[in-house]
Design a protein around this nucleic acid. Sequence first.
DNA 1: ATGACCATGTAATCCGTTACATGATTCG
DNA 2: CGAATCATGTAACGGATTACATGGTCAT
Lengths: 190, 190
Amino acid sequence: MSLEHILLGMLREPASGYDIKTAFDQGARYFWSAELSQIYPSLQKMERAGWLKSHREPSPKGPERRIYRRTAKGADELRRWLISGPAMGTERFAYIAQLIYFGEVDDFEESRRFLSALRERLHAFCELLESAVQEMRRTHSKFPDDLQPFELHEYISLRLGVRSLKAKVAVCDEGLELITARLAKETSHV
Amino acid sequence: MSLEHILLGMLREPASGYDIKTAFDQGARYFWSAELSQIYPSLQKMERAGWLKSHREPSPKGPERRIYRRTAKGADELRRWLISGPAMGTERFAYIAQLIYFGEVDDFEESRRFLSALRERLHAFCELLESAVQEMRRTHSKFPDDLQPFELHEYISLRLGVRSLKAKVAVCDEGLELITARLAKETSHV
DNA sequence: ATGACCATGTAATCCGTTACATGATTCG
DNA sequence: CGAATCATGTAACGGATTACATGGTCAT
């Protein structure tokens, strides 16, 4: 039941369902994502549970917006989730599964294409996170000492993404070398 | 619809639903996992689709086992999935979300506990994967040149896990230093 | 005999995606 | 006027977890 807790976390500032979807589509999708059709009912359910309170507000563009804000009860629930320890054990990496079983394809040229595509996607994502880190460094003169507590935790999370993605890119490069060596061997003695 | 493709990948050798669950519970849970109550119906559905063929077999221990093997059609479907490119964009990391919002707890002592627990869990997992790599190195005299294609892809996947987990452990350590510095500052001028 | 492990399954529920439905505003 | 974006929602379906149900073997 992580989504509702993540929504609580995202609602540090009051926001609409649409705002939250935008946040997922921009940076937040690196750790989670959700569709509007899941976000709207979740917010409604959370309001019924007393974790949120909403009001309608005219929008400068388009129809009225429904703005949600956390209640004290919602903030308590968020804290309870956070201090209950790291929520692990449900990670899913379809692309790692694909790499493990890629031997079934039995064509190193296809392996090379796969690893190369993977490398580029991981790299692009890493750059996105790195630019967010740069932005933090740029706007804080005494970085990292002048970060607010919430910014400090955000910073550590961004670093977690950047460093692990860089490591994965490096392994893709090593893998590409191994695969390329096999391809060279194949073409030489066939 | 990744689970069915992952099951196809796991069935390089014929196996029962119970065997597959065991594989998930041992190393495979680092990239995916599933419960028996999902595995059994999936295997049945895949057999109806013609991807698998099963037969019953007495077990040395306990009741009869149902052993599944991939058909040619199943192998084709697996290859089709693999060469369709890296399946990305649905990763979910609840623990990263927790870290991002941990500022809400507003207690660096709790932050330290969280990061420390996260570090230990990531480290333990890294060691598990590293021991699998060691085992591969040990049993291959001309490592990595004498790896079969399927082993080579497994090896690259293991390295992906090891390197990215090591990077995450290092970031946890850096984060712990930053948090510890804040704690020291708090206690000194309070 | 009782608890751990082997082994297979179904049912109820919940989480998540895709598709559908509606309508306002803004820019070209 | 048509496409893009803003904005909120419901319905149908499929994927995943939890709970339930059953029964055999083996070691203590």
